[in-house]
Simulated scan of single mutants.
Amino acid sequence: MKKPVYLDYAATTPVDPVVADEMCKYLTLDGVFGNPASRTHAYGWQAEAAVEGARRQVANLIHADPREIVWTSGATESDNLAIKGAVAGRDNPHIVTSLIEHKAVLDTCKWLERQGVSVTWLAPERDGRILPGQVESALRDNTVLVSLMMVNNELGCQTDIAAIGAMLRERGVLFHVDAAQAAGKTEVDATLAKVDLLSLSAHKVYGPKGIGALYVRRSPDVRIESQIHGGGHERGMRSGTLPTHQIVGMGKAFELAIEHLEQECEMLESMRSRFLAGVNNLDGVTLNGSDQYRVPGIVNLSFAGVDAESLMLGLRNLAVSSGSACASATIEPSFVLRGIGLEDEQAHRALRFSFGRFSTGEEIDYAATQIVDVVTRLRSVR
């Protein structure tokens, strides 16, 4: 292998060449480069049409109305807009979330706590899931919002969003779901799951970085307060000039995700099985997360007797991670692994391997062989 084998698709995906080609049509004078908000000439009309076409493509993936899609700069902004926007102006609001959410949710809720908002932090099951009964028990008379991720970005485990959504809809509590890791990896139906707010990111689905969306339910109408002001774009929920080329890229990426979902899930399941079989000869390997309720592309493993940093140094030709990219600035053990009950020593021995559309069987076999060799060598010199 001349270049490192990329097994960090959960951190970001490469832009699909089809998506990149489509984006190039919306950048230069020869293409559609106008401001979508310029409604007095053809350049603006063409850009607006492209934006609305992409809005339909994104809505189609989650079975939503295009009018329910609000463009943002990514899932982090979508999470912030959903959570802060839902509680703004409320009297004594209460939020329910979990200890293993993405930092964009955790840090937003912690910030709101400092502003006087009450937050209940749910501890997940050992396999990383939040159960409907836990959510129901945490509800109060003043609960405004529940915010939970559909697929955990470090473990790949999947929470039963539909069951929680049905229960919350009966009680009139808003439900926000971070679906950044779910889109393109499993079926996402915001309407069927009775979700009110849902965050999406393009760069997790073979689209460009810097663009995302927030689904905001229209029937019955969900109202959130804008967090960015200056022009009243996106039905007054998110101001700012829309980046047509990025939006078109996200739309095309989501269109491809619809076309390839079934085939890609089958391929990733095969890659996962192949990878786990390849490291099966090693003793002391523990799967972190659920082996049943999960997406196929993320595998989190702990290796007894070997710390993750030493293992990554030995795996110089593999691109893997010891946790979420959003928390890579800290040397602390993964808060997600600690959240599911792992001791610090166990958490320090864990690596996340994530596969994707462009992974090959040869790469999977190579990665498994390298892991077995390096773990064996590190254990021998203890």
Rank of each mutant, 00 (worst) to 15 (best):
Y215E: 07
R218A: 12
S219C: 10
P220S: 12
E225N: 03
Q227C: 07
H229V: 13
H229G: 12
G230P: 02
G230Q: 01
G231M: 00
M237K: 12
S239R: 00
T241V: 15
P243E: 07
T244W: 06
T244F: 08
H245S: 14
H245M: 11
Q246Y: 11
V248D: 04
V248Q: 03
M250N: 04
K252L: 11
A253Q: 02
E255K: 07
E255Y: 05
E255R: 06
E259W: 08
L261D: 04
Q263V: 11
C265A: 11
M271P: 05
S273A: 15
G278L: 04
N280R: 15
N281M: 15
L282H: 02
G284S: 10
T286D: 09
L287H: 06
L287Q: 05
L287I: 09
G289H: 02
S290Q: 02
V295P: 04
I298Q: 08
N300W: 13
L301P: 01
A304Y: 11
V306T: 09
D307Y: 01
D307I: 01
S310V: 13
L313H: 11
A319I: 13
V320S: 10
S321P: 01
G323W: 01
G323V: 04
C326F: 14
T330A: 15
T330Q: 11
I331G: 05
E332I: 01
S334Y: 01
L337G: 02
L337S: 03
G339K: 00
G339T: 00
G339S: 00
E343D: 13
D344C: 09
D344I: 07
A347Y: 02
A347F: 03
H348T: 09
R352T: 15
F355P: 02
R357I: 08
F358D: 10
F358S: 09
